[in-house]
Design a protein around this nucleic acid. Structure first.
Length: 694
DNA sequence: GTCACAGAAATTTTT
DNA sequence: TTTCTGTGAC
């Protein structure tokens, strides 16, 4: 460990010895095992500040995080540290320095690097990026072109097709073993799948588009290329990776190429919180890091600053029952506190009632809604609660699930812009053309062929004789596309472009969708959002790589923080966050663990870690709700409900660390059920008579 | 060729 | 509740 400069000394006082060791480690490979709530962000930002103080140029630091939000938060903290370091005399200098840090997700960094250096491996720098549902659409349209699955046997749906493809490329493995292991029912289609995936790759190349997977694949290729790798290694002196337990083989391969010996490489993570294997993340990356980089220094952070000791005891017990992991035992100096609750509810309606009541009680006692969160395994688990919150007029933000950007009308609008940016993008072309009444798959394809033959100049479309249904729209449409594609358009600003599209698209939207006015308002919001961007390319890129995570974020803008609201979030989206009070919904087998993930030991272990992540978000109050009755919307079962088991992750040993309580005490109850038991036949008759009197 | 409607089937987590 | 396929009208 090098000597800490005098000016930094004071700042590093607040770190505990392990955090300090990690922050001030020299440049050899470093693995920080940071348990939940152990000050990971603090440690990482101090480390960045330390590296800069040791003379590393900030523009040669790469900080990879799981979300844009996390990267910004980290850089803000580095800012503060550097400011203190500069003791005010070079405040602006400090800010300018930390701004030049390369921070972001793997995907957004890939996009940036590939635009700059991609030519080294023959990649054009003007590619556009498509999101998951665009990839699905492309997959689906190629499938129908190749006429696959028309032979009577049912072919996998588009989402599954993309999942299979994605898993193969992200794990760098062949199709057959992936099918055998994860999609055995698709084995009969193996040849068709190969044909389809080949065409998928060709098509993306022809259209000059990259999907999420391509960003990583091409970054990996660039880093592995002798010339390209040299460029990248020359660019970065230090690489720091957050949430390392959720990276996949491609991502660890990228790091290996950026720093073959691990020089300047820092990874931070917690194997107990690895929850993204469905996205091909592998916990092996973090478990095997010391073998991959001989001479690795391992620092384990075990002091938890978040939760009370009673909550930690319960969560420690849950994770202790998992299989393979780095040994660690989290402890807290917050010794006193309420033990966590298992709350017995009769069904998910009572669960919703309980949560609302408890949330309000805590608010009365001084914990604002924003410091409370409701977490759940699947987006739809929160629906009854959302109904209840709406009924009681309680504001909430929901994270995860369907995103603003994935709604049809937003995708429509973005497609016009994407087509203007990249006329070879046939996914967008098909989408905007088929929006016009009277134009379907066939005519749209012909029009796109004509466009391709004329060097992608939209004015060829003015010669097209539109079907009667769309004569009014057509000249306006051609003019719109010509306008957007003209070089002058961009000078007027991206929000002016959104406005143009919106004007053209409004009547189509009215015809196509119900609740059109709500959708129109969304698009107005989008126009507002667009004004923050300097170019169409950056707008499209940011929106696809880092979409606003909740509809309300777009609606209110991030600056309007004065309204209090309750947080509803999928467990996956709650990663890295914390709240005073946490409510976990549906802690019943089948929901947690999800019945979709019971095939193998590994899957179940991941569900356990997911449960662990949910519980470790809590600082002072933790309520694990267990609705006894489970409803099925499935028509295959005759009965409408069945009785659930408490999640298997609460063993009898674990249970003893919880307080068990009913959602409502019998004496508080004022339900019809309760009333019936208490009433005599006499009372019932009286009620029946009273019903008819005014 | 396009569109609208009907019926069947499947239904997690996300950069 | 959404997504896919088949059918028949225009």
């Amino acid at each position: 460990m090098s000597e800490i400069p005098q000016e930094l000394e004071e700042l590093f006082q607040q770190l505990n010895p392990e955090q300090r060791a990690a922050a001030c480690h020299d440049t050899g490979p470093l693995l920080i095992i940071a348990g939940a709530g152990t000050g990971k962000t603090t440690t990482l930002s101090h480390r960045v500040a330390y590296l800069i103080s040791q003379g590393i140029d900030p523009s040669r630091i790469l900080l990879l995080t799981f979300s844009r939000r996390a990267a910004n938060e980290m850089i803000r903290r580095v800012d503060n540290l550097l400011r203190a370091l500069g003791a005010g005399r070079e405040r602006s200098v400090a800010e300018a320095r930390s701004r030049s840090i390369w921070g972001g997700t793997f995907h957004s960094t890939a996009a940036r690097l590939l635009r700059r250096y991609g030519q080294a491996i023959g990649l054009p720098d003007d590619f556009t990026i498509i999101d998951r549902s665009d990839s699905e659409d492309l997959m689906s349209s190629i499938r129908s072109e190749l006429e696959l699955g028309n032979n009577g046997k049912k072919f996998p749906r588009k989402g599954t097709l993309l999942e299979i493809y994605s898993r193969c490329v992200n794990t760098c493995s062949k199709l057959e073993p992936i099918l055998e292991q994860h999609y055995p029912w698709c084995l009969e289609h193996v040849d068709d799948l190969k044909k389809l995936f080949q065409a998928f790759v060709d098509r993306k190349e022809k259209q000059n588009i990259l999907d999420y997977d391509d960003l990583l694949i091409f970054w990996h290729a660039l880093a592995a290329d002798p010339a390209g790798g040299k460029l990248l290694r020359g660019q970065f002196e230090a690489v720091l990776v957050d949430e390392y337990q959720d990276t996949n083989v491609l991502q660890s391969g990228i790091l290996k190429n950026l720093s073959p010996e691990g020089e300047g490489l820092t990874v931070v993570g917690d194997d107990a919180q690895s929850i993204y294997s469905f996205r091909a993340a592998t916990v092996r990356n973090i478990l095997d890091f010391p073998q991959a980089y001989p001479g690795t220094t391992i620092v384990t952070l075990e002091e938890n600053y978040r939760s009370t000791q009673p909550i930690l005891q319960a969560t420690n017990q849950i994770i202790d029952e998992a299989h393979e992991r780095y040994e660690k035992n989290l402890w807290s100096s917050k010794l006193t506190g309420e033990a966590p609750f298992i709350v017995d509810c009769s069904d998910n309606n009572e669960q919703a009632d309980f949560v609302v009541q408890q949330v309000l009680e805590h608010r009365e006692a001084g914990i604002p809604l924003q410091k409370q969160a409701v977490l759940f395994r699947a987006s739809n688990h929160s629906l009854p609660l959302e109904v209840e919150l709406a009924r009681r007029n309680i504001a909430y933000h929901k994270y995860g699930g369907l995103k603003f950007i994935e709604t049809a009308h937003v995708k429509d609008l973005m497609a016009y812009l994407r087509l203007a940016e990249n006329p070879r993008d046939a996914v967008s072309g098909l989408r905007v053309l088929t929006l016009l009444p009277g134009i379907g798959q066939k005519k749209a394809q012909q029009l796109l062929n004509v466009l391709a033959e004329s060097q992608f100049r939209f004015d060829v479309w003015s010669e097209f004789k539109p079907p009667a249904a769309t004569v009014e729209h057509w000249p306006l449409f051609v003019r719109l596309m010509n306008n957007l594609a003209s070089p002058q358009s961009e000078k007027k600003g991206i929000s002016a472009e959104v406005h143009q599209v919106r004007t053209f698209y409004a009547p189509i939207l009215d015809q196509q969708y119900d609740n059109a006015s709500a959708r129109q308002r969304d698009l107005e919001q989008l126009e507002q959002v667009a004004s923050r961007f300097s170019s169409r390319m950056s707008f499209l890129e940011e929106i696809t790589l880092d979409p606003p995570s909740s509809t309300q974020d777009v609606a209110t803008g991030s600056d309007k923080a004065d309204d209090d609201f309750l947080v509803l979030s999928t467990i996956h989206s709650s990663k890295g966050l914390e709240w005073d009070a946490v409510y976990v919904l549906q802690a019943a087998d089948g929901s947690i663990p999800s019945e979709m993930s019971l095939e193998s030991e590994e899957e179940i272990d991941e569900e356990r870690r997911l449960f662990y992540v949910a519980l470790t978000r809590a600082k002072n109050w933790l309520y694990v709700c267990f609705p006894h009755r489970q409803y099925f919307q499935n028509r295959r079962w005759n009965q409408a409900h069945s009785y659930a088991q408490l999640t298997r992750f609460v063993s009898s040993k674990t249970l003893s660390l919880f307080q068990r309580r009913p959602a409502f005490n019998a004496e508080d109850l004022d339900t019809p059920q309760e009333a019936q038991i208490e009433t005599t036949a006499e009372d019932i008759r009286k009620n029946l008579r009273n019903m008819w009197t005014a």
